[in-house]
Design a protein around this nucleic acid. Structure first.
Lengths: 230, 230
DNA sequence: AATCTTAATTTTGAATTCAAAATTATGTCA
DNA sequence: TGACATAATTTTGAATTCAAAATTAAGATT
């Protein structure tokens, strides 16, 4: 078999970047528990690195809001609060709306086809009530639109804020009614993208995000009744 | 005189954060020259710190796009490129538009009064063609609106992107015609804020940002004719 | 037994050290 | 002289070390 001559380009990643990329999933998956201290020693052992690059990675994660650094008291895994959700979703909404508008200006037919396919898959997973798959494809659709907008700055900003909202599985929680509505919204999202109707797509993405915000808030408030978050 | 009993709260800043705050101005003022290598050794001496916290700060600055880390080749001061401006300004526009909309929902009379005063000062500096002062007050107005929106996430996101655009003195360059137009736009910004007309304020801030983008691009392309940026 | 002190231990923050990579300087040969 | 190879030096990345701060444990006092 032929060998790939450009194995991974010249993508030597620095150790701290590698650690950022490895720690993010640990945080958003909830393996590192919100409100607890980041186990520096354990992570050093686990990844086979010294404290220096790990601590560099924690500084970066802190600037993204995934951990909080307390002077002389170490790094703590942040948890999603109602206040944070109320703040982040409107910003994310504005950015996604922009992504829709920009995407309509320069999206290719290959890209719309890809979204169309993703959409069909997503509908299928809605029909079988496979929430995990639905959620994964949903993310891919939003990301595909984002990439179609061809604006790295926008992609990076959205990505950072999305990550903060993806911690634990808050977003994957939906009532039957909300799920149905979300699917309807996605029908429109697909339609407006195909029609290259930027204004309508932007409006729909914004409303979609606001509905998501409301749904997440509702879930969070239900969760928080027993005990307060850290 | 009475002593302030909450002197600075418990705001012990970590060394790396202090360094981030000190390095940012060096980069946006152009003291650290775009396209050149960040003089690690010199900065360690200057700030009297070892390489460890300085390098931590550089990782954070890199994630904000103010420096670029090249594996085994050190940190380089990034320069503003046409492509970057074309990317960042639309995002900044969307965020400022949102700040206008949110601000109109909850701005206090004290805050509008403050903006009114800043606006008057800014007009004065326009009349005397004091560009530096004009520019400084201009920033304060935008920041005041941002703060009135009461959304820390939005503030942080805007701030980060603004910083990237503030490198060197690109933004302070204006033709007489553009300057006049900018002042007119600001008259409207003030008016819509006072009227709490969120939609119009958002629209005006968006257009304002787009005009600024065009002006910066024009200036950049003029600059770049002699030699290419790094 | 409960609270306060003080001592031991651990953790944190940052300087130092050290190996690997990159850069510069030196020498060789056409 | 100029192109190339090799050695010396510098710079970088990351582990280690060390002092200061925080936490925990132990002991004293009521």
């Amino acid at each position: 078999m032929m060998q790939n001559l450009t194995p991974h380009a010249i993508t030597r990643k620095s150790l701290h970047q590698e650690l950022v990329d490895r720690l993010q999933p640990l945080i958003i998956s909830g393996e590192l528990i919100p409100g607890t201290k980041v186990p520096e020693k354990m992570l050093c052992t686990r990844f086979g690195v010294s404290r220096t690059p790990l601590r560099e990675a924690l500084k970066v994660l802190a600037s993204d809001g995934l951990v909080r650094l307390e002077p002389n008291r170490g790094a703590w895994v942040t948890s999603v609060t109602v206040g944070e959700v109320e703040e982040v979703f409107p910003v994310l909404g504005a950015l996604e709306a922009l992504s829709g508008e920009l995407a309509c200006k320069c999206v290719t037919s290959d890209e719309t086809d890809a979204v169309r396919k993703l959409h069909a898959q997503m509908i299928k997973s809605y029909e079988t009530r496979d929430l995990d798959t639905y959620f994964a494809i949903n993310q891919k659709i939003h990301r595909a639109i984002l990439l179609a907008a061809r604006n790295d700055t926008l992609t990076t900003s959205c990505q950072a804020l999305s990550l903060r909202m993806q911690r634990a599985r808050y977003l994957a929680n939906m009532t039957e009614g909300r799920w149905y509505a979300a699917v309807q919204e996605h029908e429109n999202i697909l339609k407006f993208l195909i029609d290259k109707d930027g204004k309508s797509l932007a409006r729909t993405l914004l409303d979609h995000m606001d509905a998501k915000r409301a749904s997440v808030i509702q879930w969070l408030e239900m969760q928080n009744e027993p005990s307060e978050p850290v």
